[in-house]
Simulated assay, not measured.
Amino acid sequence: MLKVRARRKKHNMRVAAAFDLLADRGGKHADEHRKRAAKLRKCADALDIIDVPDDQGGVRTKLRAHYNCNLRECSISQAARRQVLGRYAADVFATAYAANPSLRFIHGTFTVPNVTGGLLSTTITRMNRAFERMVHSDDWKVVLGSLRALEVTYSHERKDFHPHYHCFLVVDGTRYFSKQYDDYKSHADWKKLWERSYRHDGLIVDVRVPKPKRSEDILGETLKQVLKYPWKGATYEIKTADGTIADPDVIETLHLALRNRRLYAFTGILRDAAQALKAKHDVDAVDPPLPGDGDVMETWDDNPADIYPAPDPNAEVILAVTPVRYQPPTAGQPADYVFDERTLSTNKDPENDQTPR
């Protein structure tokens, strides 16, 4: 658990260094880049290893950060956000399924041609408009609801970006897969629909019924594919003579192209279910994005777990706390977290004996 967190923290430090380089260049975004670098460095720098009781009478260990930056460029915040979004989206589908047990879901990927960094932002805007046209077309009526997520990858060889949508599409299983109705759409039908909506020929589309490989949780596996990170470390990291670094030009292009954008969106009955679920949690349900989705920067900086917290009936029962702090990699030693005696006194609960193990 700590090894994985340390690797993600190492990625964060590389991205922070890239933002500092961008700030050093000056320009109108220099102050913003410097602040993001500071947040990334502070994020999960100090952790608490907490032991709490589990439902079976045993002990469960979890990590708690002293500070979470909740930035899109942060590998740690993205991983936590993905868990929250996956749990939230699964509950949204369960809410819709309870009202209509005949619902079935399919996974769709809709792509556009690769573009240079200068065209990435306008291309994403064009994709959003194309998706809206597709949703309001007659051919889309077979889709009762959907969850759309944007992902952007980068090719260091071609020096271009590849934006595309991963979609969770909900259909009426009794009609879509029955020969008695005309609801079913072939691969060619989906391809033609997306090309007509985007107004471009030769686009790659992949729509299929998900099949479990190593897990019986088809819903969970599908949502993992849909709710991928907006971008991955492999997208922006490059190897140099001095080691692996985050490419500052790629970081800046992705940041400016995706800032203030909603990267996830519900439609149809899933949007209705999301409204009902948010109303249940006393959250503004007028136009609900996914929690912490961040169509504006201020929203993104909010912690999604505060809006939709993980169920934890034993959250107040802490058996032990061990404070640790990030240690950067050195010659022959990988990045890791080590015991931090300086923060031990600040983590003690006077009502519980939290002696470090």
Rank of each mutant, 00 (worst) to 15 (best):
L2H: 02
N12I: 00
M13N: 15
R14D: 06
V15E: 10
A18Q: 05
D20I: 10
L22P: 00
G26Q: 11
K28V: 14
H29V: 11
A30R: 05
D31P: 07
E32T: 14
K35V: 10
L40S: 02
A44L: 09
D45P: 09
I49L: 13
T61L: 11
T61W: 12
L63P: 04
L63M: 05
L63C: 06
A65Y: 14
H66R: 08
C69F: 04
E73W: 06
I76N: 08
S77N: 01
A80F: 07
L85T: 00
R87Q: 13
A89V: 14
A90C: 10
A90N: 10
Y97I: 12
Y97H: 15
Y97P: 07
T109F: 02
F110Q: 06
T111Y: 05
T111Q: 09
P113T: 00
T116R: 14
L120D: 03
R129V: 10
A130Q: 01
E132H: 13
R133F: 09
V135E: 00
H136D: 06
D139C: 09
K141I: 13
L144T: 04
G145R: 00
G145Q: 00
R148V: 11
R148Y: 07
E151R: 03
Y154S: 05
E157Y: 11
D160P: 02
H162R: 05
C167Y: 03
L169F: 01
T174L: 07
K179W: 12
Y181A: 04
H187C: 10
H187Y: 12
W190E: 00
W190K: 01
K192S: 09
E195Q: 15
S197N: 06
S197I: 06
Y198F: 13
D201C: 12
L203F: 14
V205D: 02
V209C: 06
P212E: 05
K213N: 07
E216I: 10
I218S: 07
T222G: 04
Q225I: 11
V226I: 08
L227Q: 00
Y229H: 07
K232L: 12
G233D: 04
T235C: 13
T235W: 09
E237F: 08
I238K: 08
K239C: 05
D242T: 13
T244P: 06
V250C: 06
E252G: 04
T253E: 03
L256G: 03
L258C: 08
N260Q: 09
N260A: 06
L263N: 00
L263S: 03
A265W: 10
I269W: 01
L277W: 01
H281F: 12
A285L: 00
V286Y: 13
P289D: 04
P291Y: 01
P291E: 02
D295I: 15
W300V: 13
D301W: 15
Y308S: 14
P309L: 03
A315D: 13
V317F: 10
I318F: 08
P329M: 03
T330S: 12
T330I: 08
P334S: 14
V338I: 14
E341H: 13
L344E: 13
S345H: 13
T346I: 13
T346S: 15
D349L: 14
D353S: 14
